[in-house]
Nucleic acid binder design. Sequence first.
RNA 1: GCCUGGGUGGUGAAAUCGGUAAACACAGAGGACUUAAAAUCCUCCGCCGCGAGGCUUGCGGGUUCGAGUCCCGCCCCAGGCACCA
Length: 832
Amino acid sequence: MSDEMHVTDTYHPAEIERKWQKRWAEEGTNTFTDEALRARGREGKPFYNLMMFPYPSAEGLHVGNIYAFTGADIYGRFKRLQGHDVFEPIGFDAFGIHSENFALKVGTHPMELIPSNIEKFTRQLRRVGLMYDWKHSLDTTDPEYYRWTQWVFLQLYKAGMAVKKEAPVNWCPSCNTVLANEQVIGGECERCGTAVELRNLSQWFFRITEYAERLLNNLDWLDWSESTKKAQVNWIGRSQGAEVAFPIARARVAEDRHASAAIEAERPVIRVFTTRPDTLYGATYMVLAPEHPLVERVTTPENRERVEEYRRKAASTDLVSRKKTDKTKTGVDTGGRAVNPATGEEIPIWIADYVLMEYGTGAIMAVPAHDERDFEFANEFGLPIRRVVAADGDSGDTPLNEAYVGSGRLVNSGEYDGMEWQEAKRKITDELAARKLATPQTNYRLHDWCISRQRYWGPPIPILYCDACGTVPVPEDQLPVVLPHIDDYKPDESGISPLARHEEWYVTECPGCGGNAHRETDVSDTFLDSAWYFLRYPSAGNDQLPFDPEVTRGWLPVDSYIGGNEHAVLHLLYSRFITMVLKDLGHIEFEEPFRKFRAHGLIIKEGAKMSKSKGNVVVPDEYIEEWGADTLRTYLMFIGPYEEGGDFRDAGITGPYNFMNRLWDTVISAEEREIDAQVEQKLHATIQKVTEDTEALSYNTAIAAMMEYLNVVRAGGRTPEVEAVQPLIPLIAPYAPHLAEELWERSGGNGSVFDEAMWPDFDATKAVADEVEFVVQVNGKVRTRMQMARGIDEHAAREAAIVDENVLRFIEGKQVRKTIFVPDRLLNLVVG
RNA sequence: GCCUGGGUGGUGAAAUCGGUAAACACAGAGGACUUAAAAUCCUCCGCCGCGAGGCUUGCGGGUUCGAGUCCCGCCCCAGGCACCA
């Protein structure tokens, strides 16, 4: 179709969208050259507008992707019209189990599948009219990208933040690989829903727990969606308390039978972590995790058999059932005894699977009166319950029906009786600390990040094992360690990567001594690929450095990041962690990658989440075909608040389509004449509202404001003034970029509206009307509405109100006791 | 159980420093223009009532001249976390 077609005066979205997409691509409207990027970062007004990059699935672009991208793109275009140099890149997160499983299913190698998926995605994305800098795109499976992912691994390795250790890890028996804690949802694999098993394997871990405190504290000042911050706070799970030592009762410790007083201090102790040292006097028994190393030692001969049996059973029970809360408590008495350091009492030591080895010390002091789980356990096994905290007016002597976890004062606690619990917490900790029996302690729920994957489709971990030198990092100048093209990439349940079947690949020589070495055959977690990609974009294409220092200084950290909240604790936490480590190592100058983050809502279809199995997936192409990208974009944003998502309904799209047509017609038919005063007032009010709402991502109300304005401009079929319609072109441009470009050109503008037009200013004094609709209430009920001059005073308003017949009817013969006056809004007459 | 959001017409929603509930739009009804249709434009559109008026923001209380908005106690929906000591 030729450009001459546009001489028609009707809105033809297909034509103008094709025309402008072509022009944007040819003229590089939205891309920076590397030189320009460098210069703009240095002396321009750089604005890094980022959105979460997609996984390029074979099904193609989803309407959910478009929803996410459009919302972010609108913000970027808005910033550009406000005069910023906006860098808006996109790339592809193409490694990972998802792609690999799909490749296995359809029998096409991922190395063939991914490029064609990316090609399809790119084609679709271009049709949506997104302002992407395609010159700075990236693909995580490109060796030129993962070369630097491997480099990131090596930096962590050198800093001692990447360690290999044997640990119980989450194993998915269906995906045949290890999963990070964050990828286990309710004991099941987040990908396939299979119950996860525990396996002891030697794996690479990133020591993210070292950064727990910083990751938590920085949340205070980050401008992020509150829900996302909360999710991270919960995930990090900081608990403050004390580690308390409970000596094992001497008689029960075989090795200690003849111990002298001199080694008294070294008597074995059971360390527990508690957040409630104030309840120490109520600790009537102890519980060790079945795997706890001291179990052997405290178990008495007569209990040994039952203890062993319980431990065997616990070891074979999968995590899912072990973590079920509604399960009744089980456990076994070891026969061993420990000394409560507060009371000096000997208390029994049990083992039970409700105590988890991986949290705290793997042992607890049980305070059944003030802990729900301990209460349940004590009732199950008839263990004593002693109340030590009581609310005001409660003697603390009556038996409890349930654990009391509230606040109060101490009872049955010796010298601490009567003390307020918070104070007792400090005092008891101090006192035990003086006796070397306690230390204040902070624990985190966060675990180290296991990044090893026994799969094929990922970047090989750049480590060698030399017969002589041991673990050797691949020298940086030998990167990338290229993932070989192999055909038998299907994983098995052995726990060994498919790459381990390829001796020709993994056997190599040691870069240190030249001796025999073999490569690490695991690949890294996909979340490592995405934990640093925002650093790469501005330097994409640089084959010397992962990220150029000058470019990075100019453009990072990211100014605005928009994405789904499903990544609240995965991608977003890992990215923050990697950024902090790189900062500490001196590679970058900031420690938080995303200044501002907003989570967008989820787009659903007729009340249900879209999924292939439900057959309710909205394919965007058809809608673009029928209505145009501008209409689809505007419709998606008009459905509801961007941060809440909404329901895609076919019927609703006609509203925004009519709006596009009406807007087109209004601008085309405008004539040169003086602007009407009321229209001008509405214009300023509209510019103000669209500016504020777009900044706040309140796109639905911004669009409504523009619709409302059109209704005023066209009221009664009037011919609009040029002055009244010109500002609409930049206002609509972020939402409907193609339409805006075309209207800009047709009204005599040169080049792209995004480069040549400015976001319109408004005059706040002109945005308000001279007359207001004033409400008169009697006893809080609306009785009449009057047109009044703005700024009318109480006396004048009252004079006008009390002669109105609708008001008179309700106040006649009654005394007005009180008058409430809200300027320019309302008058309320209170009668008795 | 805990943490987030949320619950408003036939539908998507708007209004939350307490001050006209339902902006904007979809669907619906009627009308103008037209030979007709489309497009466009105009009018109506929460519920009850002929009307005056009364009622209405998940439920029950409360504060206030006035509550969708604040407080207390619940119910329901979506998402996240969960035997974390």
